[in-house]
Simulated scan of single mutants.
Amino acid sequence: MAGDGGGRAARSRRHDPQRRDRIVAACLEVIAEHGVAGTSHRRVAAAADVPLGSMTYHFSGMDELLRAAFGRFASSVAERFERRLAAAATAADARQAVASIIVGEVFGSRRDLVLTHELYTLAAREPAFRAVTNAWMRRSRAALERHFDTTTALMLDALIEGLTIHEALGTQPRDPALVRLAVDRLAGQPE
């Protein structure tokens, strides 16, 4: 056949402008299910329903993919955190917002808790990933500092992180009244 490139119909490249985003989203799901240690190019490609070759086309290696995935995750959590605190009009509203963040309004799912701790563990071992956690902490503290002085914001941020760890690892449900008491004490409010 003339003009058909040697007898075979020319293949057109599949137009898939969302492929990179799907890979990043799939990477988060694979991490949530298998952990960072169990995350591979093959598993992510299968979860994203893309050819394995797409992995190396879009990402130079697993570190770049993990940075993109955890960067997206940290940014989405920071945005929810910022929105919740931005809605607070008074000091009491801000304290309630912090308590609500702790009891699950921002880290509302087991998936989010698992991803958070996978990121923490990776950042503890690999200094390159601390840029992701440090950017996340800066955003959290900036949101808190809209309502609290710098020292109180730092302590509240540590309380949020600590109680989030307890939630991820604990076997007993958290008492929202106790959380509110802790926030009020740290924020210098009378009981």
Rank of each mutant, 00 (worst) to 15 (best):
A177I: 11
E29D: 12
R84V: 02
E79R: 15
L144P: 00
R42P: 04
G6H: 04
A25F: 00
F129P: 02
R67D: 09
A78H: 12
G35E: 03
R43T: 04
L159P: 00
I160V: 15
V36N: 04
A88K: 00
F129K: 10
H166P: 01
A46G: 10
A46Y: 06
A37I: 12
C27A: 12
I165Q: 09
A143V: 00
D149N: 09
T121R: 15
A153N: 03
G104R: 12
H166Q: 11
L119M: 03
P176T: 00
L66Y: 06
H166Y: 07
G108H: 09
G38D: 02
D149R: 02
D21R: 15
S76V: 13
A37Y: 07
V106S: 10
W136I: 03
A88G: 02
A78Y: 11
Y120C: 12
M62R: 14
D21F: 14
G35R: 06
L163P: 02
P190N: 07
E167C: 10
R22T: 04
A26I: 04
M55A: 05
A131K: 10
A26K: 02
R95Y: 13
S12W: 09
L181K: 15
A45S: 09
A97V: 11
Y120D: 12
D175V: 06
R110W: 02
R146M: 13
A128C: 08
Q96P: 08
R8E: 14
T56S: 08
R174A: 08
L169Q: 07
G35P: 08
P127L: 03
H41L: 14
F148H: 02
D4W: 04
A48T: 02
E64H: 13
D49K: 08
A25Y: 02
V114Q: 03
R138S: 04
R125Y: 13
G7L: 11
I31F: 09
L115N: 04
T150E: 14
P51D: 10
V114S: 06
A187W: 14
A46W: 05
W136E: 07
E167Q: 05
T56N: 14
R95T: 03
W136N: 07
A45Q: 00
D149V: 03
E145K: 08
S54C: 05
A182C: 08
R42F: 04
G6S: 09
G162F: 12
A87V: 08
E33T: 14
Q189G: 13
A47S: 12
S54R: 13
L169E: 07
T164E: 13
R111E: 08
S140E: 14
T116I: 06
